[in-house]
Design a protein around this nucleic acid. Structure first.
Length: 675
DNA sequence: TTTTGAAGTCTCTCC
DNA sequence: GACTTCAAAA
């Protein structure tokens, strides 16, 4: 199939060079919209055409959305033979390798994956066990501890240096903080838990720690290709070095101007230093933009030209014509919403499908007002980014039950489940867990504990539930398990919340999703690594062919493009986020994020900023907002500046009016008995 | 020891 | 405006 592709006709010379490049290290430096994914996809097709077996190609990306998109495009281009190209995010790939090779490397099987919230909880347990932060003594919160830990693992920067740079107020606590980290790692090991960072760490360890195992794993693939390389971190770079050590067939594609994951440990240096890491690297630059019209490009080029340091690329296009991007001042959030919705309907009537339009924003919650309005006006939409569904307490509760069944040593889940019972708090839960640990995590051991009187009934129920679920251990489907535990849990839910219906509906959804997986283990891992990405995915099962407007965070929008793009909340403090303005590096990352958002547009781009917001944050202050600093004078003059809606004409006072004089105050005077 | 109510905290981005 | 934390009461 691949040999029917006319590479020369379908690609420009630079793309062609990248796609048909032979063996050895290749770095593709590609600007936004220059078809870097296209080059990568065609390169895979080319390799297949050269006779490389699909399962010997590894295609890595940074986010799961990018992975999905890329594998889909390969499949469409190269047909069935591509079906077995290995690919996914670094984490998902690490997970697959660990399930296969982990046992050979001393990792107990049936480990469960901690998502970020779980990892933070476990960190909190470690902190509590060591007695830090109990009193007034200042000690970082569990979230902060986890952040420092994760940053340390991913960037390979010492804990001391991270504290000094990011959290100087805790600098003198480095020794104690490291004790908490030690406790955290021990707990993970004892409880057979693996966090996101461990996935990468263990991958490296397998490659570097054992020559035999390392060689075995590295030899699984003949070609390694990486998209969005500017977003990889130090650990990932090490993985790639080891994976490509023998054959050196590594292709990486990236754009330094779109590096937006430094907060997660990504380092553009990986890309800048790639030629040093791999001697004899061929560099190909893609500068021909195929996405946007010239007026849009003029604006986005200006935005990024203000960046501190970057590879200079001159993006050009042959798409002349098109209107200048709009810069729209709205009175407040609601006017911003109205303008966006009106414009979307207008474009829709002119023939642009909803799916070809997107509204982008800095953070998930900023679309709240828009979502309400869209719902009211019955405009279908799909929201990307944000993991609300899995973060909802009731969903996590149900998953905790399942995770105990999967891995009875999962302390985080035990704690969560025990606390659900009325009359059981911190102390009793702790006792129960200590008992479990002493009894080698046999759930039946719970029966030995006499719970506080108030908790007796529920506690007995719990013990019976686990006994029942364990009895029928043979091949029980996950939805059946969920249904069984919900007989107990739904009652708790009703007790706890006033509005249970939406929550019960979520759990129904969870049951349905669970049915799609062959095993409980597969279900739980998938949920941690590839959580349902859009709310709609859940609601309808699959909504891929429905026409729906896309709402997305700027981060989740990377790598995608739409005919029309609306960037909302372009207000200083929102975008850039006020939280990300503490250092020049952070500010620069925000700028690149704005650049990413604006470069998603093909034909229509509008940037909106409400002039003021009403107590949108806390309190109920009325604030006057400033346009985002990234839309500076030079950028503005390349845009069409406009007000969302014209101010109403003033009511003119009459110069003189004939008729009876009226005394308005007199109407009320004396109404309640005059003094 | 658990619960409850009040005071206090800080919002993001993703695997 | 939601969620955590702290202090006091049951």
């Amino acid at each position: 199939m691949p040999d029917t592709i006319d590479f020369a006709a379908e690609l420009n010379p630079q793309q062609h060079a990248a796609a048909t490049f032979g063996n050895g290290p290749l770095l593709v430096v590609a600007g936004a919209g220059t078809g870097k994914t296209r080059a990568l996809v065609y390169r895979v097709a080319h390799l297949l055409g050269r006779g490389v077996p699909p399962h010997r190609i590894l295609l890595l990306t940074f986010t799961r959305r990018a992975a999905q998109e890329m594998l889909g495009r390969v499949a469409r281009l190269a047909g069935g033979s591509s079906a077995r190209v290995h690919g996914g995010t670094f984490h998902a790939t690490a997970h697959r390798l660990l399930r296969a090779y982990g046992p050979a490397a001393g990792l107990a099987k049936d480990f469960t994956i901690l998502d970020q919230g779980d990892a933070e909880d476990l960190m909190g347990m470690s902190r509590a066990a060591l007695g830090f932060g109990q009193r007034k003594s200042r000690f970082p919160k569990k979230e902060t501890l986890h952040h420092v830990y994760s940053r340390h693992v991913n960037t390979e920067i010492s804990v001391e240096d991270i504290l000094r740079d990011d959290l100087p107020q805790f600098s003198d606590l480095a020794i104690d903080i490291k004790k908490v980290f030690a406790g955290y790692t021990t707990r993970k090991e004892e409880r057979n838990l693996v966090d996101y960072d461990d996935l990468l760490l263990f991958w490296v360890a397998m490659l570097e720690g054992s020559p035999e195992l390392g060689a075995r794993i590295a030899s699984l693939y003949d070609h390694v290709l990486v998209d969005e390389y500017q977003d990889t971190n130090a650990l990932q770079a090490r993985i790639l070095r080891a994976m490509a050590a023998t054959h050196r067939n590594i292709t990486v594609v990236g754009d330094d101007a779109q590096s937006i994951y430094a907060f997660r440990g990504a380092n553009v240096r990986n890309m800048l230093d790639f030629p040093k890491q791999f001697e004899g690297t061929t560099v190909v630059a893609l500068e021909h933009n195929y996405r946007s019209t010239q007026p849009i490009l003029d604006v986005t080029n200006t935005v990024i030209s203000r960046a501190r340091q970057r590879f200079t690329k001159n993006l050009f296009t042959q798409r002349t014509g098109g209107e200048a991007p709009a810069l729209v001042a709205a009175k407040d959030e609601h006017e911003q919403t109205s303008w966006v919705v009106d414009r979307i309907l207008e474009l829709h009537e002119q023939g642009t499908p909803l799916r070809e339009m997107a509204v982008l924003f800095r953070a998930g919650y900023m679309s709240a007002d828009l979502e309400i309005e869209l719902t009211n006006r019955k405009i279908p939409f799909e929201k990307w980014g944000g993991l609300k569904f899995l973060e909802a307490a009731h969903v996590k509760d149900v998953l905790a039950f399942l995770r105990i069944l999967e891995n009875p040593r999962d302390e985080v889940s035990w704690f969560r489940v025990l606390l659900l019972l009325p009359g059981i708090g911190d102390a009793t839960a702790r006792t129960a867990i200590d008992l479990l640990q002493a009894r080698r995590w046999d759930p039946e051991a719970l029966a030995e504990l006499t719970p506080p009187p108030r908790a007796r009934e529920a506690y007995t129920q719990l013990v019976q539930l686990f006994a029942a679920l364990r009895d029928g251990n043979v091949d029980r489907a996950v939805p059946t398990e969920i249904a069984a535990l919900r007989r107990m849990y739904d009652a708790i839910l009703r007790e706890r919340y006033d509005r249970v219906e939406p929550r019960l509906a979520d759990l129904d959804q969870l049951e349905i999703i669970a049915g799609k997986f062959p095993s409980r283990a597969a279900f739980l891992s998938e949920l941690a690594l590839e959580p349902p990405s859009a709310t709609q995915d859940l609601a309808t099962g699959s909504s891929t062919d429905d026409d729906a407007l896309i709402l997305s965070t700027a981060h989740s929008a990377k790598g995608r493009e739409w005919d029309a793009v609306f960037v909302i909340w372009a207000v200083d403090g929102w975008f850039p986020s006020s939280r990300a303005l503490r250092s020049d590096e952070e500010t620069e990352e925000e700028r690149r994020l704005m650049y990413v958002a604006m470069t998603r547009a093909r034909h229509h781009l509008a940037v909106l900023y409400p002039l003021n917001s009403y107590g949108s944050r806390w309190g109920s202050e009325y604030t006057i907002d400033q346009l985002s600093r990234f839309i500076d004078v030079g950028v503005r003059e390349r845009m069409r500046r406009m007000a969302a809606y014209p101010a109403p004409a003033p009511i003119l006072a009459p110069e003189a009016l004939p008729g009876t004089p009226l005394d308005l105050r007199a109407l009320l005077r004396g109404r309640f008995g005059a003094p």
